[in-house]
């Protein structure tokens, strides 16, 4: 059964692609193989087939034939709208694309990237890989939520989801963009309750995402720039700390900083850092070989961590 339907759909596509003029419905039902049964049954079959092909993204053009056929419409698939056409794609670029699409491994985006590549590889461009490319990318696999969320973004529908933070709450969001940053996937958008742009880590979503039935509920500001909304502690704000490093230790730390004094037991260094928590972890990792001198506020946080362990 499924064989016959598949066969009919392929035959219909072939026929509509091959024709320059519009094919009348009656011509199709008579000539294209696979339309059987009563006239009514054939017509219903054809209507469903048209919908099916359109759902695959195939454009079926409906046109008026000439006056003789009065109200009988004609159909065809314009080659230009059917065929993939990427002008000037070079073999090297095709090779780059194949390399890039391999990043997905077995993640949710892999099948899409692979079928895209297959189509490009059917264009008749010889791929040439003349570079040594060895770098791989290991990252958190994107979750199954990606497809749902990107659909919501494209149709501009609001979403709600349960999010695991200090308090587990349902969030209501106008989703703007899915962001890949620091090896993790995030969703950025307008938090409707807080009336502010917020960033959410996809791995902390609990359960599924509910997409509003309505479309075009919001607009993404034309000047929206993701990089403006990433947490400040993690981007470009660089602060300087003063630390003392015990002799013959902290080689990595020394390399990052600038020595400002030499002592007997400890040397003093100035070191730039971006993320406070990550920096504190680095200091504590070195145990008693590094002593934080400044800034005072950071030192207090360090002592909170240590006292937390000791109590």
């Amino acid at each position: 059964m499924s064989d016959r339907k598949t066969e009919r759909l392929i035959n219909l596509t072939l026929a509509l692609l091959a024709t320059k003029r519009y094919l009348k419905k009656s011509e199709i039902l008579t000539n294209v193989q696979g339309y059987e049964g009563s006239q009514d049954a054939k017509e219903r079959m054809f209507e469903r087939d048209k919908d099916d092909l359109r759902s695959l993204g195939i454009e079926i053009e409906v046109g008026d034939l000439d006056v003789f056929f009065e109200d009988e419409p004609g159909y065809r698939i314009p080659q230009k709208s059917y065929e993939l056409n990427v002008p000037d794609l070079t073999g090297r670029e095709l090779a780059l694309l194949s390399v890039a699409s391999n990043f997905w491994n077995d993640s949710i985006l892999a099948p899409n990237a692979q079928s895209g590549i297959r189509k490009l590889q059917s264009l008749g461009i010889p791929a040439s890989l003349d570079f040594e490319f060895r770098m791989k990318y290991r990252f958190e696999n994107p979750s199954e939520l990606l497809e749902q969320i990107s659909k919501a973004i494209l149709q501009k529908s609001r979403i709600s989801f349960a999010y695991d933070s200090a308090s587990l709450k349902t969030r209501h969001l106008e989703p703007y963009r899915i962001v890949f940053w620091n090896s993790y996937w995030y969703l950025i958008g307008m938090d409707i309750d807080r009336k502010a742009i917020r960033l959410f880590k996809l791995s902390r979503f609990q359960g599924s995402v509910e997409i509003s039935k309505k479309k075009n509920e919001f607009n993404i500001p034309t000047d929206f720039d993701v990089s403006q909304h990433l947490p400040k502690e993690d981007v470009e704000i660089i602060r300087t700390a003063v630390v003392e490093i015990r002799k013959d230790s902290g080689a990595l730390f020394r390399r990052r900083g600038k020595q400002i004094a030499e002592g007997v037991e400890f040397d003093t260094y100035e070191i730039d850092y971006e993320n406070e928590r990550a920096f504190l972890r680095e200091i504590l990792w070195h145990g008693e070989n590094i002593r934080l001198v400044e800034p005072q506020a950071l030192k207090e946080q360090l002592l909170i961590l240590i006292d937390g362990i000791l109590t």
Partner: peptide, 29 residues
């Protein structure tokens, strides 16, 4: 191949997955 001599257009998910792959590639270089 009769009239099937050219590949079909890429759909939205195909093209977006490839664009993200390229962005990832770029970020490593």
């Amino acid at each position: 191949p009769q009239s099937l001599n050219k590949p079909r257009k890429m759909n939205r998910t195909e093209i977006t997955s490839l664009l993200v792959s390229l962005d990832l590639l770029k970020s490593t270089r």
